[in-house]
């Protein structure tokens, strides 16, 4: 991806997070906890598990539809980050060639099974992470972290990071454009120019930090970042969390997929 593409990508995801749907309105803490439990449950399956992972797709599907998130956008973003998992996973079918099963005359090796399992887990974990931020504003996540006990200092500067992310990306983009406009092909994209470029950007950033600090002082800043309570855990959030935990428990410990499969097999027979 080029710089511009990445920039607009983040912007789009950020805009989605300010939506007004049921999932957007849930308390960020509930969503953060729910997501982490989901991830832990998904990765707790053994490396040869495939069928039992299927019901878990229900959660991302619900987030996408109830949260009105464009599916293609999320899938595109997932493909961009997939190389590492695929690169490591692809060695499984090469190195592990024992036969796992013979289905309709085709023998399937355990390596392919575990590779497929990695891919499914990748799809689930990454989509849920992206959907968390697509349905929860970043400042919401930060406040959730703060109230879950993360240090105030960490959260304050995380909020600053988020606030100036877009400002600095724009500034970087302007510099990059100026470089590309005058570099005619490859020359000018080398290391020396790059170093100088970040050097300048760094100095501007420090100056900006100074101006921000001045603005903070002007409005009575005395060392502590004040924060208002914004959301309360209400019945809706607790209900969401309990349903989530119940589903995770059922999906984890009862082989639903297999059960359904058997019953259908039985009917067909």
């Amino acid at each position: 991806m080029t710089f511009d593409e990445k920039y607009f990508d983040i912007g789009r995801l950020d805009r989605l997070s300010y939506g007004e749907t049921f999932v957007h309105r849930l308390d960020p803490r509930a969503k953060v906890i729910g997501t982490m439990l989901f991830l832990l449950t998904v990765v707790s399956f053994s490396k040869y598990e495939i069928a039992a992972l299927a019901p878990f797709f229900l959660y991302p599907m619900l987030l996408v539809t109830v949260g009105e998130i464009p599916v293609r956008f999320i899938i595109k973003k997932m493909i961009v980050v997939s190389p590492f998992a695929i690169f490591i996973g692809i060695f499984n079918p090469i190195l592990d060639t024992r036969t796992a099963a013979v289905i309709l005359g085709v023998s399937v090796s355990t390596g392919w099974v575990s590779f497929l399992s990695i891919l499914l887990k990748f799809t689930l974990t990454i989509s849920v992470a992206l959907l968390l931020i697509a349905t929860t504003s970043f400042s919401g996540v930060c406040h959730a972290l703060r109230r879950l006990g993360f240090p105030a200092l960490f959260v304050s500067q995380l909020l600053f990071l988020y606030r100036y992310l877009f400002v600095l990306m724009e500034e970087t983009m302007r510099i990059i454009r100026a470089r590309d406009m005058r570099s005619f092909g490859k020359r000018g994209t080398g290391l020396r120019v790059f170093v100088r470029l970040i050097g300048i950007l760094f100095l501007r950033t420090v100056d900006r930090a100074e101006r921000i600090y001045y603005a903070m002082l002007s409005r009575g800043f005395a060392g502590d970042m004040p924060a208002l309570k914004r959301s309360r855990m209400v019945l809706r959030d607790l209900a969401y969390l309990s349903v989530m935990i119940a589903c995770l428990w059922v999906f984890r410990f009862f082989p639903i997929t297999e059960g359904i499969g058997r019953r259908v097999q039985e009917l067909l027979r």
Partner: peptide, 15 residues
């Protein structure tokens, strides 16, 4: 002044 500086430098590294 370190708090805003840290945040803005984080954004810088990210960019």
């Amino acid at each position: 002044r370190t708090i805003p500086l840290m945040g803005v430098l984080g954004a810088f590294i990210f960019a």
